[in-house]
Amino acid sequence: MMTHIGILIETTADGIKPALNGVITAARGPEHKLYGLVFDGKSAAYKDELQAFGIHKIVDIQSDEGLLNWNPDCWARAMVDALDYFEIDTLFGLTSFQTKDVFPRIAALLDAPLLLDCIGVDLRTLTAEKSQFSGKTIATFKLGGTHYLFGIRPNVIDPQPSPVTAEVLSFKTKISEESLTVEAVKEDAGDAIDLAEAPIIIAGGRAMQNAGNFRILYECAQVLGAAVGASRVAVDAGWVPHSMQVGQTGTTVSPNLYIACGISGSVQHFAGMKTAQVIVAINTDPQAAMMQNCDYGIVGDLFDVIPILTRRLKSALNDK
């Protein structure tokens, strides 16, 4: 039997979020028909990219009045409508700010199970794996019900193309009066690159000493196309906003490369980045937990090492 699977296609001004290809890869299966659900009205423009990864139907979700601007309640209701219409019983998405705001609403409306931040999903057995207890354990959950929702942790599943021919459809939903209204969307302090989805992160800790010194991390990040993160110490000291905090009470990340600069490596910090593919530590203290539990460590002062790294990367990456 064909299983219809929906995938929330999150987009930015630059197009489809790159980390979404891993999510589509995770949702594929021999008996699966994949529906890409798009809210920005640009389905046709995404056709080539989405069909290359195996999306069969690309659905523009709109209301009678046109595009649905960001309102998590209204998006959730529109998605419930679309799931019903296309007989979709399983929904996938990236574990992002927007998914964390919309998927639980859908799950609540459908009284359906939801697992966010999954590192693996098996639809045959309706099980999924995710970390718990600050990343100290991996739990396998068994889901029961008629609908299932999964948010995948960015970058944990290797994207593999699997070309098909996609069809572009449009779906109009009726919007009822909402009690929750979005009055405005405004710019927020902090990095414009999404920390959780960044393929490379360079993060600073106590040894950064002050807010101004983060400049050297930004310079290095620019060369690498990386996001800048921080440890809790740096956030609590007021050097950087909380949105940059990696760890237990900050953001959980799983980049391909994590460069920890002057971060000693508390249990709570590891909780937020231990699933990174490669960890590099730069620290004056060779005994620091981060140095013991990294892939590559450089014993040295970050103020010596980072400028050299930035300069060398500039030429190394230009040689590619």
Binding site: D111, I138, G144, I279
Partner: peptide, 20 residues
């Protein structure tokens, strides 16, 4: 209508061999 039950729990092991 639905449920989310823990089936198995295992420790998350770190197997990094730091190369200094």
């Amino acid at each position: 209508a639905g449920s989310i039950q823990i089936d198995k729990l295992r420790p998350a092991v770190d197997q990094r061999h730091a190369k200094i």
